[in-house]
Design a protein around this nucleic acid. Structure first.
Lengths: 215, 215, 215, 215
DNA sequence: AATGAATGAGAGTTCATTCAT
DNA sequence: GATGAATGAACTCTCATTCAT
């Protein structure tokens, strides 16, 4: 079963275990360096040092810097993004659900790791065409789809009304980015401000419900 | 009329010499290279070649790469950003005004130059602290303030109702970034799609009016 | 008379005055920069800035950096070196004369300006062949000749006895360089220490008189 | 015998690799270039070329130019300076010992390598504070201490008399620098002249014995 | 006579990548 | 498979020198 489910190139699972460990070790080191210095600013030497392997080993696992970078971004996306959509599953009044979703989203997109990832992907997207897609698939697309499904359920309930649940979900997440996320991306107002966070969240819910709520 | 009013750049060639001309020549070259390769990826040699000056001349006009970069960003901000807020001054029904503003904004932020600037500033903001501020002051802040003033006028007219016009304006612009701008920043869906643009624009106006319009 | 005594290239004395002023101005600026940074470390731009003239003017007065440097060293030698041999002319007991000469010499060669000049000339002598000669002629040679003459007078008086007064003078000045001058040249013990200075001086006189004094 | 006793450098080639060999190769190349051009005048490219390694390799062994320079000076001091104090151990009449010491010293300090080292250290001492100390500890200090000890022994024998043997030793070495060493440092009279050397040596011994000899 | 903008070679240094061990 | 010494091109920046004004 194990062998049949694996479509990775490695031929034997024992040495593969070794390999996978090293690969992770390298990616962990690369994370730290790419996160701090970006793509151009990160040196393979620094990554090797951080990962405690030799530079030669780096090139045994990744053909070049660009490949290592792509693997780093993919891992980041898979690990860090899909963590904040739990509230949708709860069975509470719509406004409470939306408020919880908005709070989770605002906190997710304004935390340092996410900002770092956003910076790197926005910056390098033109030169690494698959980057944007990997990020989108692992993050925004999932969030939008999940919220759109919840909206459809609410339509069935009669509490919401829209002819394009997906687009409405996208608008809701756009509203969640008002002020704080935009400013943070420009490195402005970097300190946490609970009051402003509450305002962004409640105003997003308010506007969304005014537009799409029945009643 | 238009031609006679455009006497701003260097009216007399003797008093200022070619300095300003050369400076512009360099900044134009720098634009092309920074835009294509970002800050770290742009080399002073490439900029000199693009600007058709020697490397030494670069350093006669800008003390170092960071200074040249800052000047480039500032010029970009001053030149490219403050062009799209004219519709607000017109005397039309609120929905038409908002639609025109939304259309101008969507087009502004999804055009290649703006995306390039956005990428660079988001990417380099942590290492160039003043960058984000310069961009914000010359772009978003102006747009937000202008729209907020118009909202206040509409409140006086009784057509709109909100207790925080500035925040409402920010929400409107957040709505304008739904889908197209987000995707473009990740280098996804780069082709122009008028249908989708119309949808984003009208949905933004619709939601905004539902939330803040007085019937 | 004035014109006949002048063998310099300048054809008219009025513009020559202008010229000579500028030349001095440049040399004064060059002094400061060469003194602080040495030959290779001094840049023509820094010299021009220090002298408050343009770089072009530098090249109107001196063909290149090496020429300017040679002129600077020559001026230094002529100005700073021949100042400390007065005591020899006085009419006092030999030991007092020698003590005064030794004190003047120790102070001369351990003062910052002299050390700077010594460093530069010793360092650049192999690449600027005339440098060492200019320094020697304007400094050590004069001092040695002056003291040798005094020694000859003392031989006539019967107070000293040596078959090579020039060499004896050279030995005396060598003794004056014991400890303090050697250490200073290596940038060691840079603070002034009157006690040690006295010791060097008196020991030099003592040894010299023991060797060449006639009881 | 000679070959068997010379096993000091890198006894096993596998444990240490070629590191020490390359390091020496670089230092040898650096020697030639620093010796000819001084610190500022020596370029890392020229050193790499002279040492027949790439510029990158230079920086694998030495963090920067200053470090390479310091290593070069230290190696010079350790290798070249402590070679000329053997005569002191012999059991001969004081004048013969002093004459042998003086001859060794005069030859040491007037040979091209020593002059080169002297030029560089005197010139760079202000910018490399540890330079002078390294030189002093490895050269002059050792020579002075050795001779001072011998003087103390002679005092015990009753052949010499001085209340400061260290200072007397310093004076003796000062006398050894009369004429030839001074001139050579200014690149004057660079040819060897045995007659003059003898004169300097004998006169130094003569003056020293007249001052500090009993009898 | 004086300027200072312009040059381009070359400085010290870093880096992705290779390859013999 | 892992290493890290070696490479050489490319980097940012400086400099002595020239020349149109």
């Amino acid at each position: 079963m194990a062998s049949s489910s694996s479509t990775l190139p490695s031929p034997c699972s024992s040495c593969m275990g070794e390999s996978e460990t090293k690969r992770q070790q390298i990616l962990t080191g690369a994370s730290a360096v790419f996160a701090e210095h970006g793509y151009e600013g990160a040196s393979m030497s620094a990554i090797a040092r951080q990962a405690a392997v030799s530079k030669g080993t780096l090139y045994n696992y990744f053909a070049n810097k660009a490949d290592l970078f792509a693997a780093f971004v993919e891992q980041c996306c898979r690990e860090k993004l899909p963590v904040a959509l739990a509230p949708v599953r709860e069975d509470s009044p719509p406004r409470e659900i939306l408020t919880a979703v908005a709070r989770a989203m605002v906190r997710l997109i304004t935390q340092p790791d996410s900002l770092m990832l956003y910076r790197i992907i926005v910056s390098e997207a033109p030169r690494f065409p698959q980057l944007g897609a990997v990020f989108w698939e692992n993050g925004p697309r999932v969030a939008i789809a999940t919220l759109a499904n919840w909206i459809r359920e609410q339509e069935a309930n009669g509490t919401l009304k829209t002819d394009d649940p997906v687009f409405a979900a996208e608008q809701f997440f756009s509203l969640c980015q008002t002020r704080i996320a935009h400013l943070r991306r420009f490195n402005l107002n970097p300190e946490n401000n609970t009051e402003e966070e509450d305002k962004v969240i409640h105003a997003a819910v308010q506007v969304f419900m005014a537009a799409y709520g029945t009643q």
